Amino acid sequence: MGNDYFEQHQCTDFCDDRKEIVARDKREKRIYKIINKTSKKFCLVRVDGCLIIEGKKCDYLIVNCTDQSAIFIELKGSHLPEAAEQIDASLTQLQKHLPEFTIYARIVTSKMTAPDLNSSQITKLRKKLKKINKSNKDYLEHKSQKFEEVF
């Protein structure tokens, strides 16, 4: 089952079963990559400046049409609390288009600062994701420079 809203949207860069899905800003070192080993259908959607124009928003949304999951991605300098706010705001606006989807949040920073991991914004986003996903699992992850996952 797919998601027509994102599959047909003008802000969607692609929607197919390619082997690598890469979210990266032009001329940036920070990168989020999915290795698509089992040919699942993914859509890469530009959120910042396209899907959402006003207010806080994350950079990208990757929709896994095969497994009905969505990954909100923010590529950030070092300010984790602000990245969490941007993902939270995007999730609030786009959640209605992702019914019954498992929602993940991924933050890729250029450098990590330990105190930010316990910020109220990070805690709030973690709680929101657990509530949406009806699970106690942690759906928010962050890494420095390069974040790669296999699906």
Rank of each mutant, 00 (worst) to 15 (best):
Asp4Thr: 00
Phe6Asn: 04
Phe6Arg: 03
Glu7Tyr: 10
Gln10Trp: 12
Cys11Tyr: 05
Thr12Lys: 00
Asp13Cys: 14
Cys15Gly: 08
Asp17Met: 05
Lys19Thr: 09
Lys19Val: 03
Glu20Val: 07
Val22Met: 14
Arg24Trp: 05
Arg27Tyr: 09
Glu28Gly: 09
Lys29Leu: 11
Lys29Gln: 13
Lys29Pro: 05
Arg30Glu: 09
Arg30Val: 10
Ile35Ala: 15
Asn36Pro: 02
Asn36Tyr: 00
Thr38Ala: 12
Ser39Asp: 01
Lys40Met: 05
Lys41Arg: 15
Phe42Glu: 10
Leu44Ile: 01
Val45Asn: 02
Val45Arg: 02
Val45Tyr: 01
Arg46Cys: 08
Arg46Gln: 13
Val47Gly: 02
Cys50Asp: 08
Leu51Gly: 03
Leu51Trp: 05
Ile52Gln: 08
Ile52Val: 05
Ile53Arg: 13
Glu54Trp: 10
Gly55Asp: 08
Lys56Leu: 06
Lys56Phe: 06
Cys58Tyr: 05
Asp59Phe: 07
Ile62Leu: 13
Asn64Lys: 02
Cys65Met: 11
Asp67His: 11
Gln68Thr: 11
Gln68Ala: 07
Ala70Trp: 00
Ala70Phe: 00
Ala70Met: 00
Phe72Gly: 04
Leu75His: 03
Ser78Ala: 12
Glu82Ser: 04
Ala83Cys: 02
Glu85Trp: 06
Glu85Asn: 07
Asp88Pro: 07
Ser90Cys: 09
Ser90Trp: 06
Gln93Met: 09
Gln93Arg: 12
Leu94Gly: 02
Leu98Gln: 04
Glu100Asp: 15
Glu100Arg: 15
Ile103Glu: 00
Ile103Cys: 00
Ala105Val: 12
Ala105Met: 07
Arg106Met: 06
Val108Cys: 13
Val108His: 13
Ser110Met: 04
Lys111Thr: 07
Met112Ser: 12
Ala114His: 14
Ala114Cys: 10
Asp116His: 14
Leu117Arg: 15
Asn118Cys: 10
Asn118Glu: 12
Thr123Leu: 01
Leu125Asn: 03
Leu125Lys: 01
Leu125Tyr: 01
Arg126Pro: 09
Arg126Gly: 09
Arg126Ser: 13
Lys127Leu: 13
Lys131Trp: 07
Ile132Val: 04
Asn133Gly: 06
Lys134Ile: 00
Asn136Gln: 12
Asp138Phe: 13
Asp138Cys: 09
Leu140Gln: 06
Lys143Pro: 00
Ser144Tyr: 11
Lys146His: 12
Phe147Val: 00
Phe147Leu: 04
Phe147Asn: 03
Glu149Arg: 15
Val150Pro: 05
Phe151Asp: 11
